[in-house]
Structures are given as structure tokens and as C-alpha cells.
Design a protein around this nucleic acid. Structure first.
Lengths: 331, 331
DNA sequence: CTGAAAGCGCTTACAG
DNA sequence: CTGAAAGCGCTTACAG
């Protein structure tokens, strides 16, 4: 491995001149050529550790993710990674396995490692998060949740909820179970529900009940079984695709046919939703695109350029087979 | 951020003494206490860049993965990551988006970044791979494929194929379509098929035809449609779960009911296989465990301890609903 | 435009 | 056991 000194000698100039060339400073035509030649000969690449030691900052963006094995997470990461690569930055992933403690630790650990910025695929923002981010003093970008203290990219949960509500009502459903999650998750637990509620309020004679369950399929399945028995809705509007999957399992178990006996919708647009049969009607979010945008904005933050506080990523209602047309009426 | 000099001054000793303490060298009882106290006060942690600059090696294991959005990949990564963390190593992921070129680039790039070792979630090992690994001279571990030049952890594809064959025959199926993939993929394309063939050879009066398709669901679906029409098997034994999913979609489209009209099996044990209805009978591999073992072995390689050339990870046939009992006979 | 020098924070022989 | 000194490979004022 050759060093900057090797190529300085080869080119017959000083180390500092080579360094200047490398960092885009102005060098004379002749010396530039000699340096370029020397670099070509040796295949020289700068030692990143030496660079970072001086610069006290890397070109690495630390990305904190609650789990690796979710569609949303992996798509978002792919988007971040590809975009970052294009801009000559690198992504370092910290998987916290849904542990808030590890999430906080990762913030400090990334700061120690001189990450240029931190992207958090957020579920909940606690005081500990705020404190950590404030003490490390590194550019931060949230994906999936918004917070007044930080820049963020969110999915349009409210309007997706609203449009999903409209869609379900248009199809004629009037006995609806909304199966949501904890309100501590603002995006998934609050916004989607609020949007849905708004759609409901625009219509009359509609019986809607709101329930809360957990994110995992088995929990959703158990909740659904209860609800089917005690309420007997004609449709489940579920706050996530996984919850919808749990509802579908419950309905098989109860011998209900989808969508004839029971309709189901989700949110997310996970690829499994089109593999299953019947395919699931859902509000698709654009995780990869959101990740790409996050990467771009993060680099702008690093360069201290102005960035809008919150960007809203789009969505799309995808009609598939899990919802019937009960009435055909238009609202 | 405090440096080693700060804590040397605080403790009233020399930098080198602190460094020795930090690296497990012998220090006197009294100085040890003073140093520990100083570290506690300041919350000092060593600057990793300065360390790496001297040591010319990091405690980071570079992990090259063809894609992030696959069950096998994410489970394997989770296993590697968790185990590495426990051993005070870090994982750095390079996602190549199925580009062989990027795979090769990543090898060189990891070497430049002084990774302590490289783990490759392998699909195909080409001459370029071999050349790259030889020139960088960094410990290497393959997961998923074996190769004489390198250490590796593989899944027991051969025996999984064999046992799947036995299982299908026991259930009474005798008109079988084996839907495989390219033989350039030794593990998936060759070994699983070989194991399956062995099982077939132990029985008589069995009509088996072998086909080849691509890894993606739509491609498998198209292949399946053809095969259903021209051969009309009573069961599809598919080389991967995704291919099995494609077959299931094709059978819905053709109006065939699973498992009554057509049975299906896969390999992999992806979690989607138990979400769908009917749930898929498959040979489950233990990706996360394989990742954990890979991490352990990699660290041993880094430390230049002896490591077995190839480790075989286990599998398990999971019986679910996509296969009927046609005969009930025992082989 | 170019170069000499100091310094980033750590480790590693080498003396004592 | 402990410390002074050199050096890892780079960057950054500062002179010229």
C-alpha cells in the first residue's frame, strides 16, 4: 500500500501539494499531471483512518434501524444505501433489534465514530432520544416519524388513512372494525386512524369500532378472532399489512371466506401482500424512495445547506382482491 | 471529547501507560486505579481512527450481501451482527444489489478500509472472486456456497433435498415436476437436486421431470403454467420457497386447488411460507444460526486460530398444508 | 501555486 | 512497572 509520501516523491512534489490536489485545491497544470501519473502507477488510495483522524469527521452516515427483517426497513435501507453511494458517502447500519436502549447507545456510538450524520428509522421519539441527539451534536434525520426538534421524512399516513376510509365506504362497507396500534406510535397509531376517522365522519349510518393490537401477526390474529365473535364486522381496516395478515389467518380459522364473508385492508404495500391469495388491498408507501430522499437531505444537512423540516412521501391505494364491491355506490 | 493525553494527565501518568492499561498490558495496582478513575470521570473512549491508523487493522468485519430484501439475507445478517457485537467486533454491510461487479469492488474496498475479515453471502464464486480475495490477503469466509480455496459455512442442501424427496414419495406422489435453477449455483441448483435424485433412485415406477427456472416469483409462475399444461404433475418440488410461491400463483390462475389438485414444496423456510394459505411444506434452513457461527469462525480466523474448512448447518423438513397424503404408504 | 512544519490520537519498541 | 520519543498517513494554516 502506497502512501501520500510515496506519490509525493514519485511526482517530485511535497506531500501537502498532493493533499491539496486530492482535496480539489488548485495545483499547477504540470504538477497535476505528475501527480495523476504517480497515482495511476501506484494505484494509490488515501488511508481513510488517517483522513478521519485529521478531519475529525467521516463520510459515513450512521443509520439506526429497529429491525433488519422487515420489508419497510430493508427497502428504506436500500434506498439510503444506493443514493449515498452515488454521492460518495457510505452507510453504516446499526440494528437495534427493537431495543430502545440499543437505539440510544447507537446514537452515542455513532457520534464517537465521527459519523457525518445519523439517520433514524424511527418508531418512537423519547426524551432520551432528544437528549442523546442534543449532546452528540451531529446532523440528524428521522424517517417515519416527525418531531419538532429534528428534520424528518414521513409517509403521508393521514391522507392514506383518509383515502382508505373513503375507499372502504365507497365499496359499501358500513360495519367496520378498525384494528390499530398504540398511540405512542404517532405515524401508525395516530395519523392513519385520524385520517380514517375523518372519512368516516363525512358519512352517516356507519358503525365503526376501534380496536388496538400489537404489530405481530399472531397478536393480530388473536385480536381479530375476538372481534369477529363479539362484533362481527363486514370489514377490517388494519393499521399495517402484518395486522391484516393476522386477520386473514383468523378468518381462515373461523371459516370465513375473504372477501365474501369478510373484507380486509392494510397499510404498507409489503410485497407479500400481492403474493398471498386473495391478494391484499392496501395503501402502499414508497419506502425506497423515502430512503433515497433521506440520503440526499442528510448530505445537504452535513454540508449545512438548507433543508425543509419535514418532507412528506407519497402513497397509493392498491385495490386487490381482499375487498368486495358491496354496493357500488359513489360517495 | 477527551483523549488519552487528558486521562494521562488526570491520572498523573504517561500516555503510554494509559495505552498499556487500555490494551491489557500490566500496570501497577495504584496506577491502574488512578487511570480507571480518570476514565470514569471523563467518560473517555479511544478514538477508533487513531487506533486503526497505528494498528493498520480494524475490528470491523465487512459483510458482502447480494441483496438486503430477502429473508435468507436478513436473517443471516442478524445472526452475524448479534454475534459480532457480543465479541466486540462490528459488522459493515455492503449490499451489491446482485451485481457481480459490485461484489468484486466491495472486496477491494473492504480491504482498503482495513477490515479485519470479509464474510461473503455467496451465490457464485468466479475466478474474479478468487483473484480479488487472493490479492487483498484478508481472512475470508463464505456462507451458502463452498469452495476449496476458502473457509465456508453451508446449509445441508444435499440431505435436505434427499429428505424432501423421501417425504414426497412417502406421501405417495409419483408424478413429480422438479423445478430447479441454474447449475452455476452449486448449493441451490446442484446439491438440492442431487439429494432429491438420490431419493428418487431408491424407488420404482416414478415419473419425474426436471425443469429449470429463475429465482423470481413471476418467472417461476410462468414456468409452472407451462409445466402444468404439458406434463400435469401431481406435485411440484421447487428448489426455493419463492419458486414454490410462483407455482402456487400459477395453480390459482389455472383453477387448481392446493393440495388436492396439485401439491407444492419449497426450500428455505421463509416466514411468508407459514403466512400464506395453504401454508407451504418446506425444508427450513437456519440462516440466523449460520450467521452466528460465521461470526464466531471469522473472529477465529482473524485471530489465526484453526477453523474447520467447511461447516454444515442443519435443516428441518416442515410439514404443512401444501402437500396431501395420497397413499399413506411407508417406503 | 508550492513546501516545511505541526499536529490529529493513538501504539510500540526502547530505556530505565 | 513506567515514561520519552518516534511514527502511523494525512491535513492545515502559514510562509514564500
Amino acid at each position: 500500500m502506497s502512501t501520500i509520501l510515496d506519490i509525493a516523491r514519485l511526482a517530485g512534489v511535497a506531500k501537502s501539494t498532493v493533499s491539496r490536489y486530492l482535496n480539489g485545491g488548485s495545483v499547477g497544470e504540470a504538477t497535476r499531471k505528475k501527480i495523476e501519473q504517480a497515482i495511476r502507477e501506484t494505484g494509490y488510495t488515501p488511508n481513510p483512518f488517517a483522513q478521519s483522524l485529521k478531519a475529525k469527521k467521516t463520510n459515513i452516515i450512521g443509520t439506526i434501524v429497529p429491525r433488519l427483517d422487515s420489508y419497510a426497513a430493508s427497502q428504506t435501507l436500500i434506498g439510503i444505501d444506493e443514493q449515498l453511494k452515488q454521492m460518495n458517502y457510505q452507510m453504516l447500519i446499526s440494528n437495534t433489534s427493537q431495543s430502545r436502549e440499543r437505539e440510544i447507545e447507537s446514537i452515542y456510538s455513532f457520534a464517537k465514530q465521527k459519523m457525518a450524520g445519523i439517520i433514524l428509522l424511527a418508531t418512537e421519539i423519547t426524551d432520551e432520544h432528544i437528549e442523546a441527539f442534543e449532546t452528540v451534536n451531529v446532523p440528524v434525520l428521522l424517517i417515519g416519524q416527525e418531531h419538532e426538534n429534528f428534520h424528518s421524512i414521513i409517509h403521508d399516513d393521514f391522507h392514506a388513512g383518509y383515502e382508505m376510509g373513503r375507499y372502504v365506504l365507497e365499496k359499501g362497507y358500513r360495519r367496520i372494525a378498525y384494528l390499530g396500534v398504540t398511540e405512542r406510535d404517532i405515524a401508525v397509531g395516530v395519523k392513519r386512524k385520524q385520517g380514517f376517522k375523518k372519512a368516516i365522519q363525512e358519512v352517516e349510518n356507519c358503525e365503526v369500532r376501534f380496536y388496538e393490537t400489537l404489530f405481530k401477526i399472531p397478536a393480530a390474529q388473536a385480536s381479530a378472532r375476538e372481534i369477529i365473535k363479539e362484533f362481527g364486522p363486514s370489514i377490517f381496516v388494519c393499521a399495517t399489512d402484518n395486522i391484516a395478515l393476522g386477520v386473514m389467518k383468523a378468518s381462515y380459522a373461523e371459516g370465513l371466506s375473504i372477501p365474501k364473508d369478510l373484507a380486509v385492508t392494510g397499510f404498507g404495500g409489503y410485497d407479500v401482500t400481492e403474493i398471498i391469495h386473495p391478494a391484499l388491498t392496501t395503501a402502499k408507501f414508497f419506502y425506497k424512495e423515502a430512503g433515497e430522499k433521506a440520503a440526499r437531505q442528510m448530505v445537504e444537512l452535513v454540508k449545512e445547506l438548507p433543508v425543509e423540516k419535514v418532507s412528506i412521501s407519497k402513497y397509493e391505494i392498491i385495490e386487490r382482491e381482499s375487498v368486495d364491491n358491496v354496493s357500488g355506490q359513489t360517495l
